[in-house]
Amino acid sequence: MLDYVISKYNFWIYIILMMIGLYAMIGKKNLVKKLIGMNVFQSAIILFYVSIGVKAGATVPILSGHGHGHEAIDVASYINPLPHVLMLTAIVVSIATTGIALATLILIYRKYNTLEEDEILKIRKETGA
């Protein structure tokens, strides 16, 4: 049982972080808190992708040779580079979405003068908008 838990510990970490982020997105009333939860969630997904590319006993995917040798390269001694590439893109896109979300948040604050979800809903109900 303990062996099973330890052999897949990266998945437990990512599940815990994902649950924290999801709870912040659903349960918290403040909009900045929701956004922080979204960031935690995204980091958890990226952690999941990075951790499935790990090979035990392998090194970083940078070849130390001269680059034009024809010797055979042992695949098992280099970490899988493909998840890293995809996650580089994902990090930059996540920052872009965060920027857009923060701009929207500033607009909401200018209009309603608050960032609490329930107060915004109350104001919208009172003004009939």
Binding site: L63, S64, A72, I73, N80, V85
Partner: peptide
């Protein structure tokens, strides 16, 4: 991993 260095002349595969 096997072809990147030969085809693109970049040691960093990522």
């Amino acid at each position: 991993i096997q072809e990147a260095t030969e085809k693109t002349a970049t040691p960093n595969i990522v």
